[in-house]
Design a protein around this nucleic acid. Structure first.
Lengths: 113, 113
DNA sequence: TGAGATATGTCCGAAACAGGACATATTGTA
DNA sequence: TACAATATGTCCTGTTTCGGACATATCTCA
């Protein structure tokens, strides 16, 4: 039961915060769309639809959260995305919120023990 | 700029994870719907519509994540919600995910420094 | 040569969702 | 006595979103 909860949560986070998940992923290691899909599939057992991902990547680049450079690997074109300083700011804001939320619950747990 | 990012994120979290936000709030201190609205307004400057909250509270109770007891305070009926053990399990799963996500980015920051 | 993998892109219809309106009842205060 | 606050509830409608389909191109391996 507790494990199934976790799967559902991971799915929800990727559905609703896909942009932030991508920013954090790309912050750790610059990547192209196809690799992001495979990476998320492996790491979280979650199917990302490319029909949702590619438009989002383009949107994030237009908004200045990501920048891309094209690389040709054996005839195939890859658009490798990097996080920008604006993107880092957004990711940081998210982290700050998460840290704050966790802190709240840590103190609750101490009270309940 | 960085502050406005944070407001947007808090809003998004409350929109998409309202159930989990409620579970955590009620875990810290049992509350009734109206108080939850006022509390979130004060703490986060976010308007929660009761038309979304009350059906959700009922749904969370039906699903066994919350339990309620009725209290009459000066003629007005309050349904005070408490978290159940199942609710705690769900909140824990969420926390676990958040901790994992934060850990990932902590190591990235060290690499970038 | 044909299938599967790599790689990126658009588009449409159905389903989910949010915000505001509708609804009711009590209490306190101007 | 009428309005604001407390308190809980449903419902409809317009918008947003999502999954799947459509589209294209290259490479590798059987």
């Amino acid at each position: 039961m507790p494990e199934s909860f976790k799967n559902g949560i991971v799915e929800r986070v990727f559905r609703n915060f896909l942009d932030l998940m991508i920013l954090r992923l790309v912050q750790i290691e610059p990547m192209w769309g196809y690799k992001i899909i495979k990476h998320v599939e492996e790491q979280h057992q979650i199917r990302l639809r490319h029909g949702a991902l590619y438009p989002l990547l383009n949107k994030l680049e237009k908004s200045g959260f990501l920048r891309s450079k094209k690389e040709t690997k054996g005839g195939r074109i890859r658009k490798i995305y990097e996080i920008t300083s604006k993107g880092i700011q957004l990711a940081e804001a998210y982290d700050e919120f998460l840290r704050g939320e966790l802190k709240k619950n840590e103190s609750t747990k101490i009270l309940q023990e």
